[in-house]
Nucleic acid binder design. Structure first.
Length: 607
RNA sequence: GGAGCCGUAGUUAAGUUGGUUAUAACGCCGGCCUGUCACGCCGGAGGCCGAGGGUUCGAGUCCCUUCGGCUCCGCCA
């Protein structure tokens, strides 16, 4: 019954040819109607093949874009015949003529959509296995697979675009800083472990068994040394390493734009940094940021937003109601360290189910519950807690919040850090739920006047909030010794859309002040000498007043690209368990290597 | 250290209360096709249901353990 179909094998056409003296004339995104009739030579990867038996079309892709190529039996029958063997991701070189597409056949979605290349000659430069996922933007392969085949993932235009932008931004930064007389100086990657701050990545020493280098968390002390050296203005686009748990916006190795200046105060550093950010936004995505970035003190940020990096693209603010409930009959509130309210205009439309979800959500931050009041259209309050409030308390609440029919009030009461963390997170959640966040907007914000120190209950001592080299503000010397929690720092953070993208300070530049600082941190002279001896020495030899700032380049690029994760702007990022799915790092090493390093493993694990 | 979500053809997913031979789409292989552009039409191949153990006459489905991915808390000067 069924006819025998003669099947073909195209392998005879899959012969890889040398490049020879073929040379590209154009990228796959630059040939337009202006090139009509020209002979061109393009190379790239085959995005799609559309084989009509007669005509064969392929879309050729490179970093820049796509160009349609046509194999026509009339034009060159040998070239056409061989083209049947072309498959996705084959690497080809196309010599041909630029031809206008027939009427109605133009593709307005492509830069090159007016034209096509009719093939005179072509070379197969390499074949390809069928890729594990389609190399296109709409590909919905899992991130696990994409990370394993990162070299294929990076072929996707949306990802490639991020790295083109990243390069543009880095070059823009270099131009800007070079123009202001900054010197790009490289600092060591094999350095000394600094006990304060994040956990270090350690590198064992072969020549000094038992000793370890640490990879830098930042070049902080080196850049300060460069100021003592008189290099005056330094910058570096530099890898930094922190052995801490990962997040969507945190990788164990990341890139900082690290900057330090001599003979400046905080205004000058902030002014310089602000203009740098404006320049980058202008030169990369042609976006004008405000001529002056808004500023907010740390205290105000905590009061109004419950966090030190508020997303000010939308306007909801927290309100404090602790005083209203002092001595209240409602014991839970009366005994609370802090009571804060998030008023959501038109929030009464939230369902019971949604409120339950929010209740669960704030539990993540240690909250024990989420009290709420819905203001009904008739002004009546609907709430599980209002029955515990006195008339006076209700009146004060009305006055404080100015709540209107249709609103909902969310309450958090308890320890202040939990109240703030829970409501700050809920505020973002609500902003998303009610679409209050304009995703096309960029909202830079300086946060200033940070506390110098914060108490660490685990270590039972004060630790530096920024780092131990940050200068206290004028006239705060006594606070430093007597009321350490009240001392303010000459520190500033640049926040963008709720992300901390930069942070810096004016540094301590006299040995006396540095000693006071170490004393406040409970670091005695001997310990200070052992850990920071070279800094203490350097400050004695005419250190100029200096300060600086460091930007998280990855975060900045993430925001510029509108990416949801820092991984989308890092070429070879690590997974949440800090492994690389492509190289399978980290991995065991040979016993010989370990022996040389003088290291013995508790459990045997060798490569 | 902790919480939540997830893991089924190459890929993305569906799979009811535990019940014959585990679905679909895309991709892949082959045939036809001269204006497609996510081409179209026809045919075909493709599975240790992440891994291990248990309950059961019977497990993709229930239980335990474990590995991996993501989001978050802690942590990240």
């Amino acid at each position: 019954m069924s006819e025998q179909i003669e099947e073909r094998d195209y392998d005879e056409y899959r012969v890889i040819e040398p490049l020879g003296d073929w040379k590209r004339t154009h990228s796959c995104n630059e040939i337009t109607a202006a090139n009509m009739g020209e002979k061109v030579l393009i190379m790239g990867w085959v995005q799609f093949r559309r084989d009509h038996g007669g005509l064969i079309f392929i879309d050729l892709r490179d970093r820049e874009g796509l160009t349609q190529v046509v194999f026509s039996p009339e034009h060159n029958s040998e070239a056409h015949e061989r083209a049947h063997a072309i498959r996705s991701e084959y690497v080809v070189a196309i010599k041909g003529e630029v031809r206008e597409r027939p009427d109605g056949m133009r593709n307005p979605n492509l830069t090159t959509g007016e034209i096509e290349i009719v093939v005179d000659e072509w070379k197969l430069l390499n074949t390809s296995d069928t890729p594990p996922f389609a190399i296109e933007d709409r590909s919905d392969a899992s991130e696990m697979l994409r990370l394993k085949y990162r070299f294929l993932d990076l072929r996707r235009p949306s990802l490639a675009k991020n790295f083109i932008l990243r390069n543009k931004a880095a070059q823009s930064v270099r131009r800007y800083l070079d123009g202001l007389g900054f010197l790009e100086v490289e600092t060591p990657v094999l350095t000394k472990s600094t006990p304060e701050g994040a956990r270090d990545f350690l590198v064992p020493s072969r020549m000094n068994n038992g000793d370890f280098y640490a990879l830098p968390q930042s070049p902080q002390l080196f850049k300060q040394m460069l100021m003592v050296s008189g290099l005056d203005r330094y910058f570096q686009i530099v890898k930094c390493f922190r052995d801490e748990d990962l997040r969507a916006d945190r990788q164990p190795e990341f890139t900082q734009i690290d900057i330090e200046m001599s003979f400046v105060n905080e205004e000058q550093v902030m002014g310089m940094a602000e203009e740098m950010v404006r320049t980058v936004f202008r030169e990369t995505i042609e976006t004008a940021l405000p001529a002056e970035f808004p500023r907010m003190t740390y205290a105000d940020a905590m009061r109004d937003y419950g966090c030190d990096k508020p997303d000010v693209r939308f306007d909801l603010k927290l309100q404090e109601a602790t005083q209203i409930f002092k001595g209240s009959g409602f014991k839970v509130f009366a005994s609370s360290e802090l009571i804060k309210i998030l008023r959501v205009p038109n929030g009464a439309e939230l369902s019971r189910k949604e409120i339950d979800e929010y209740t669960k959500f704030v539990e993540i931050y240690g909250s024990k519950g989420l009290a709420w009041i819905k203001v009904k259209e008739d002004g009546e309050w609907q709430s599980p807690i209002v029955k515990f409030f006195s008339e006076e308390e209700c009146a004060k609440l009305r006055e404080l919040t100015n709540c209107q029919p249709g609103d909902i009030l969310f309450f958090q009461a308890g320890a202040s850090d939990i109240v703030n963390a829970a409501l700050a997170a809920l505020r973002i959640k609500i902003g998303e739920r009610f679409e209050l966040i304009d995703e096309s907007k960029f909202a830079p914000l300086w946060v200033t006047d940070f506390p110098l120190l914060e108490y660490n209950p685990d270590e039972k001592r004060y630790v530096a909030r920024h780092h131990p080299f940050t200068s206290p503000q004028e006239g705060q010397i006594d606070e430093l010794a007597e009321k350490p929690a009240d001392a303010l720092a000459r520190a500033y953070d640049l926040v963008m859309n709720g992300y901390e993208v930069g942070g810096g300070s004016i540094r301590i530049h006299t040995p006396e002040m540095q000693k006071k600082m170490f004393a406040a941190l409970g670091i005695d002279e001997e310990e200070a000498r052992a850990k920071f001896g070279f800094l203490m020495d350097a400050l004695k030899f005419g250190a100029p007043p200096h300060g600086g700032i460091a930007f998280g380049l990855d975060r900045l690029i993430m925001i510029l690209c509108g990416a949801k994760s820092i991984r989308d702007v890092i070429a070879f990022p690590k997974t949440q368990k800090a492994t690389c799915l492509m190289t399978e790092a980290p991995a065991g090493v040979s016993s010989t290597q370990l022996r040389e390093l003088g290291i013995r493993l508790r459990e045997k694990k060798e490569a």
